[in-house]
Amino acid sequence: MLEVSGLNKSFGSFQAVNGVSFSVPKGGKLGLLGPNGAGKTTTISMICGALHADSGQIVLNGAQISPETHALRKDIGYLPQEVALIMELSCADNLRFFGSLYDLNPAELKSRIDWALQIVGLIDKKDQVVRTYSGGMKRRANLAAAILHRPALLVLDEPTVGVDPQSRNALFDAIEGLCREGMTLIYTSHYMEEVERLCDDIVIMDHGKVIVQGPPSKILELARGERRVKISFDPPYEGAAERDFELPDLGPSLAALLNDLAQKGATVTAVQTSGATLEQAFLNLTGRELRD
């Protein structure tokens, strides 16, 4: 479906994207993770034709796309980070405008608008001026504008930033519904749990480069070295009621640790383990917190 290879983009002396390559099969759901400045938005802007790549290739369904290949962009639905709507118009008017850019005829456009508004749960508020919407409603309307033409590839750039939990759930339900219909997804986020919930493949980027690509299970493998164990003692052992340990695994290594503690006279009352998370994997791979 989508092949990105050797993508480069610089702004002056700053190289925002440096040799990025990845692929997404038809119907695949790719999560693009990275801290601020990692190059995620620049990468997807090039995929959507909003930015010229300095070099590299983006091939969608066998055709190479660039800002000049206008017709190919009708297969892409793009949701930018910012709310890309006309605040002075109603949601329905916004969707009519965006729909018209994709050459939808009036009858088709009308049914698509209703379909998109149903999906994002704004059908009852479609005639309300967007300026009067809450932040979450604006984000949902933003999504409706991106999916209106039923694109084969949906690219979402941090769609839940600044969204209240209720709207976040509504957005998630809508996106999951679209994925079930077979839409291919590229999803960028700071939130690991969103990517874990939605995506079957993850690309971790930092400083403009791809650090790793693989399914969540593969990424978790990389976090194994960071498993933590919290052990409680009663009476306190060496003056402490609790101590944290880092272990390579929770099997033989933990058994060996407990045995050692017993031999030293410690009375263990509780053992708490924390499993490997994508957050830990990210920290391991980049040396930075995801939301840095």
Binding site: S45, H70, P80, V83, A84, L85, F98, L101, Y102, A145
Partner: peptide, 13 residues
């Protein structure tokens, strides 16, 4: 803003 970016990603010059 995002609106311009959104337009640039639409299928026309």
């Amino acid at each position: 803003r995002g609106f311009g970016k959104r337009l640039r990603s639409a299928p026309f010059n």
